[in-house]
Structure formats: structure tokens, C-alpha cells
């Protein structure tokens, strides 16, 4: 379904998609009869932090998963740094929703972070001291250096989220895609995560976050992508994150008072 991607990258054209870390064209995903994501285009700007915003069930996570080949799309093309997804897997780090895995799994924090080195280690490569050092370094960056030998189920939700972030850091990617990293985490974790993401941006990496907290969009992100099954708006926060676009995305689901408050904050 993604076969057109590599051809697109080579064809010269006005809009140069090869510069975009992630460009999606005409993506449609359906779980049953009704599409969860319908004919969505998205062009992620390099070196920026982008929030994917929309009401519950708007297809935010689904769009991300389809772009990564985790769920099969009905149609659409995805390009990563101008090439097909399969060619660029080493440059992408993905952080799934915390609740999507069983934290009772018998493994320690350090083992989870080492999973981020799978592409480097390969099927049967030995884990050496330098790999462990990399993993420990990533844990230290999210403030979890003291928890390396803990069973993952013994961590709080926020700590688990930070371990997931550490695993993505271990991947050493250029494009970071995070699915609801701030959902149900404590304030300290939220701070730690956003500071790590900002440091990634400073290092020239691109960060895309499925986000639900409208109040923090202004503080955290450069760009927004509003979705409600279809794309509603896309662009810099100042232009695309307005009372009007929010009303379009959320419809009646966002209380008028909330919209007014946000509009005030945006003004």
C-alpha cells in the first residue's frame, strides 16, 4: 500500500517532500465500515515539535499507527525523509501509549531500554558493555538512572512513560513519534518529558506528539495538526490553533466556555 512512496521521492516537483521527515498523502484507515481516518494529508516540518490534536476517537493514534505500518491503511502514501518507510526505519523512534502493553511482563527497566537497540544488535547480536552504557545514559536523561534493575511493573505510570521515552532515545532516531506521552502522568514526569523533547529539538530532531491537553499546546509546541477523522487544520500554533479551528475539530464536544478561555489565552 506504500509502494508509491519511493517513486514520489525521486520525481522533481514544486513541493519538495524529501525535506519533510514525515509526509502523508491521502491516508485512509478503517477498522470496520466507518473510516477512522479519512483521506488525510500531513507534512511534518523538520526540526520542529508538532502536536496532533483532536477529540477522543478522532483518529489521532490511528493516523500515527497507520503511518508507521502498525495498522494497515486502506489507502494512502507515507514518506519518511523522502523515502519509503521500510528504508528509513532506523531513523524513526516510536513511543506507544503506555496502556498498550502489559507491564506485568517479566522484564527489568534496563531490558526495555535495550529493546531500543534491536536494529543495532540484530537478531542474535550480543549485548555488550557499550550497549548497556548507552541504555544507562538514556535512562539518566529521563531521570530514571536509579531504576535500571527494577521490574517494570513496580514503577509508577509516570516512571513507565519515562522508560518508554528512554527506549526511544536509545534508538538514536531523527524523527520521534509519541502517542499520548502525557496521559495520566505526574507533573514531574511531564516536566522531564517535555525537557527531553525540547533538547531533541535543539539537537535538530523532529518530534511529533499525539496530545490531548489543549491548555499546554502553546507552551510546548511549534506546530499543530488538528484532526477529526479528516484533517481540520495544520500549521504553526499561532495560525492553526485558533478558536475557529478548534470549534471545527471538536464541534459541540468542546464547551463554549472552554473555547472562549482558549481564545483568550491565544489572543
Amino acid at each position: 500500500m506504500l509502494e508509491l512512496a519511493s517513486n514520489l521521492g525521486q520525481a522533481p516537483k514544486a513541493e519538495d517532500l524529501s525535506k519533510s521527515p514525515l509526509s502523508i498523502r491521502g491516508l485512509t484507515v478503517s477498522y470496520g465500515q466507518k473510516p477512522a481516518v479519512f483521506s488525510v494529508d500531513m507534512t511534518v516540518e523538520a526540526g520542529k515539535m508538532t502536536a496532533i490534536i483532536g477529540p477522543n476517537g478522532a483518529g489521532k493514534s490511528t493516523m500515527l499507527k497507520a503511518a508507521l505500518g502498525i495498522v494497515p491503511p486502506v489507502s494512502g502514501q507515507v514518506q519518511v525523509f523522502g523515502r519509503s518507510l521500510d528504508e528509513q526505519r532506523a531513523r524513526i523512534a516510536y513511543v506507544p501509549q503506555r496502556a498498550s502493553v502489559d507491564w506485568d511482563f517479566p522484564t527489568r527497566v534496563i531490558d526495555v531500554v535495550l529493546m531500543g537497540l534491536y536494529r543495532e544488535l540484530g537478531l542474535m547480536g550480543r549485548v555488550r558493555a557499550k550497549h548497556r552504557a548507552t541504555a544507562m545514559d538514556c535512562l539518566a536523561r529521563v531521570g530514571m538512572g536509579d531504576f535500571a534493575d527494577r521490574q517494570i511493573g513496580q514503577l509508577s505510570g509516570g516512571q513507565q512513560q519515562r522508560v518508554f521515552l528512554a527506549r526511544s532515545l536509545a534508538q538514536g532516531a531523527d524523527l520521534y513519534l509519541l502517542d499520548e506521552p502525557f496521559a495520566g502522568v505526574d507533573a514531574a514526569t511531564e516536566k522531564a518529558i517535555i525537557s527531553v523533547l525540547k533538547s531533541l529539538r535543539e539537537a535538530g530532531k523532529t518530534v511529533v506528539v499525539v496530545h490531548h491537553d489543549l491548555a499546554t499546546v502553546n507552551d510546548y509546541f511549534d506546530n499543530v495538526f488538528l484532526i477529526n477523522t479528516r484533517k481540520v487544520a495544520e500549521g504553526p500554533v499561532a495560525e492553526a490553533f485558533t478558536a475557529e479551528t478548534l470549534q471545527n475539530a471538536y464541534g459541540g464536544r468542546l464547551a463554549t466556555a472552554q473555547v472562549d478561555q482558549l481564545a483568550k489565552a491565544l489572543a
Partner: peptide, 22 residues
């Protein structure tokens, strides 16, 4: 023995395993 690492990752976190090309 051969698929140990891939089995471990895909058993723990299927979505992540897919993004790794497993």
C-alpha cells in the same frame, strides 16, 4: 534461541516491534 530477542520484543510490545521491522 535464534528468535529470542524478536520474540521478547514482539511479545512485550507488538506495535513497537512492528516499527522495528520485526
Amino acid at each position: 534461541a535464534v528468535f529470542w530477542r524478536a520474540l521478547k520484543i514482539s511479545t512485550f510490545d507488538e506495535g513497537f516491534a512492528r516499527t522495528q521491522g520485526i
